[in-house]
Computed example of a mutant assay.
Amino acid sequence: MKNIVIFASGNGSNASSIHQYFQQSGRVRIAAIFCNNPQAGVLSRAHDLGIPTEVFSKVEFSEPSFVERVRSYQPDLLVLAGFLLQVPEYLVHAFPNQIINIHPALLPKYGGKGMYGMHVHRAVFEAKEPETGISVHFVNEHYDEGALIFQAKTTIAHCQSPEEIAAAVQALEHQHFAAVIDNLLTADE
Rank of each mutant, 00 (worst) to 15 (best):
172 L>N: 03
74 Q>Y: 13
16 S>E: 15
153 K>T: 05
80 L>V: 09
184 L>F: 00
40 A>H: 00
132 T>K: 01
156 I>Y: 01
165 I>M: 05
170 Q>D: 09
144 D>Q: 14
32 A>Q: 08
150 F>I: 13
60 E>K: 14
5 V>K: 01
128 K>T: 03
169 V>C: 05
159 C>G: 04
33 I>S: 03
146 G>N: 10
27 R>W: 13
160 Q>R: 15
186 T>Q: 14
38 P>V: 08
96 P>V: 04
175 Q>D: 10
37 N>T: 06
145 E>D: 08
165 I>K: 01
7 F>Y: 12
11 N>H: 08
152 A>S: 13
4 I>P: 02
65 S>K: 13
35 C>I: 04
178 A>W: 01
119 H>I: 12
63 E>M: 07
125 F>T: 03
33 I>A: 03
163 E>V: 10
176 H>E: 08
55 V>M: 05
111 G>M: 11
49 L>N: 10
184 L>K: 04
130 P>L: 02
166 A>I: 07
18 I>R: 06
182 D>K: 03
54 E>R: 12
27 R>Y: 14
31 A>I: 07
38 P>H: 07
24 Q>V: 12
40 A>P: 01
171 A>I: 13
61 F>Y: 14
171 A>S: 13
55 V>H: 01
13 S>M: 05
137 H>E: 06
178 A>H: 03
121 H>F: 06
1 M>D: 12
165 I>R: 00
173 E>W: 00
52 P>Y: 13
12 G>S: 08
29 R>G: 14
137 H>V: 02
66 F>W: 14
130 P>E: 08
64 P>C: 07
90 Y>G: 07
51 I>K: 00
21 Y>S: 07
82 G>M: 07
154 T>A: 05
8 A>Y: 03
65 S>C: 13
161 S>T: 08
160 Q>T: 15
125 F>Q: 00
156 I>Q: 01
35 C>S: 12
148 L>E: 12
155 T>I: 14
150 F>P: 00
3 N>A: 05
54 E>H: 13
178 A>Y: 04
64 P>M: 07
69 R>C: 14
75 P>H: 04
138 F>L: 12
36 N>Y: 01
102 I>N: 04
79 V>L: 03
33 I>V: 15
7 F>N: 01
148 L>A: 12
60 E>Q: 15
49 L>H: 13
93 H>D: 15
60 E>I: 08
45 R>D: 11
117 G>H: 05
61 F>V: 11
57 S>L: 11
5 V>W: 02
27 R>T: 15
2 K>G: 01
38 P>Y: 07
81 A>M: 06
127 A>K: 09
106 L>A: 07
41 G>L: 09
10 G>C: 08
